[in-house]
Nucleic acid binder design. Structure first.
Lengths: 205, 205
DNA sequence: TTTTGTTGATTGATCAGTCAATCAAAAATA
DNA sequence: TATTTTTGATTGACTGATCAATCAACAAAA
C-alpha cells in the first residue's frame, strides 16, 4: 500500500478535509483528529506533513483563496467590456460553491482567525485588496477616478456584507437576488456620472 | 469586604471584562481565568454566577446588543423625518465605540460563534432583523414598498460589510467615510424613484 | 539497505467545571 | 444589647477531559 509520491496527495486530502470539517463545524476550533479522520489518515500524519495545526489551517485558507482567484481570473478573461468585467467579478463572488452555507461558515471562521493569526490576516487582506482593485480598475474606465474609488469601496463592502448576513441563515437571500442587489448599487451610482464609454480602451494600459 | 448584593455588580463586571478580553484577543477562545482576572475575581466566582462559560458568553452578547439597541432607540427618537431617521440608524451603527477595533473583533467573534451556538445565533438574527426593519419602516414612507425592501436589504448589507472589512485593518475607512458611503447608497437608489414626501404621516400608523 | 509513508501509544499542557472551606454581614434569638 | 445562626460571597485546590505534538517502530517500495 505505501507508495512513493504520497505527499501531495495527502496534503491535498488534508487541506480539503480541513475545509469540510471547518465548514460543518462552523469554526476553527476543530481538532487535528477530526480533520485526519475526515481525510482517512491518522492524526500523526497530519502533523508529519504540516508540522502544526496552525500551518495546516493556513494552508487551508491559502488554498481556498487560490481557488477563488483562479475563478476570478477565468471569469475576467471571458468578459469583454469593463461593465461586463464588473458583472463577472460579482458573479464569481456569489458562485454556488462560494455561497454554500459551509463555505460561508468557513470564510467567517477565517475572518475571526485573522484577528489572531498574522498570516491568516495577510491572506485575507490580499483577497480584500484584490476584490477592490479588480472593481476599481474597471470602474475607472467608466467614471472619474474619485467616484470609482468610492464605488469600488461600496461594492466590495456590499459583497462582503451580503456574505456575512447569509451566515446567519435568517432571511436567506438567493444568489440571484444578491447579484441583483450589487448590480443595482453599481448601476445606481454610475447613472448620474459622466460617461467615459469613449475611453474604454484605457483599460488596456 | 464581603457584603450582600454583590451579584449584579459581579455579573456586570464579568460581562464587561468578557467583552474587553474578547475584543483584545479577537476571539471567543478566551479562558474563564482571563475573564475573571480582568474582572478582578477568581475563576470560580465566574462559574458561581454564570454556571458555564457558554452562558457568560451569551450574556455578553446580549448585553452588547442591548446597548446597541438603546442607542438606536434614543437616536430614532431624536430624529424627526423618515430621512433623518435613516441617517440616525446609520450613524448609530458607526458610532465611535461600535467602530473601535476591539468592538469589531468581538462582533466578528460572535458571528463566528453563532455558527455553533443556537442561542448566540438567535441574538444576532434579532439584531439583523431589527436593523433591516428599522430601515424598512422609514424607507417605506419615502418610496414604494418593493423598492424599500431592496434598499433596506442593501443598506443593511453595506453596513455589515463596512464593519467586516474594518476588522482586517487594511485600508481602514474612517467613520465619516463609512457613513458617507452608506448615505450615498440610499440617496442614489432613492433618487430615481417616485417621491412619497406628501405621505410622510404614514410613518405614524 | 536506505528512504518514504504511516501509525499507536504516549506525553504535557491547558482548561472548564467542582467542591469543601472560609469569612463577614445580616437576621434571629436571647 | 449581646449572642448565635444563617446566608451570600469568595477562593484555593483539585479533577477529568481534551488535544496538540512527539516518537519509536514498522512496512513497503526503491
Amino acid at each position: 500500500m505505501p507508495k512513493v509520491g504520497m505527499e501531495p496527495v495527502r496534503r491535498k486530502a488534508l487541506v480539503d478535509a480541513a475545509m469540510r470539517v471547518i465548514g460543518d463545524h462552523g469554526s476553527l476550533t476543530v481538532t487535528m483528529s477530526e480533520i485526519a479522520k475526515q481525510a482517512g489518515v491518522s492524526p500523526a500524519l497530519a502533523h508529519h506533513y504540516f508540522g502544526s495545526k496552525e500551518q495546516l489551517l493556513i494552508e487551508t485558507v491559502r488554498s481556498h483563496l487560490q481557488r477563488l482567484r483562479d475563478s476570478t481570473v477565468t471569469a475576467l478573461r471571458a468578459a469583454k467590456t469593463p461593465r461586463e468585467k464588473l458583472s463577472a467579478i460579482i458573479r464569481v463572488s456569489f458562485q454556488a460553491d462560494q455561497f454554500a452555507p459551509e463555505t460561508i461558515a468557513a470564510w467567517l471562521a477565517f475572518y475571526a482567525e485573522a484577528q489572531r493569526s498574522e498570516e491568516t490576516r495577510r491572506f485575507l487582506v490580499i483577497y480584500a485588496r484584490r476584490l477592490r482593485s479588480n472593481l476599481l480598475a474597471n470602474l475607472k474606465v467608466l467614471c472619474p477616478s474619485e467616484d470609482a474609488e468610492r464605488i469600488a469601496e461600496g461594492a466590495a463592502a456590499m459583497i462582503d456584507g451580503l456574505y456575512i448576513r447569509q451566515s446567519l441563515r435568517s432571511a436567506p437571500i438567493s444568489i440571484d437576488a444578491s447579484i441583483a442587489l450589487t448590480e443595482d448599487y453599481i448601476n445606481a451610482l454610475l447613472a448620474p456620472l459622466p460617461r467615459k464609454a469613449a475611453f474604454q480602451k484605457e483599460q488596456i494600459k
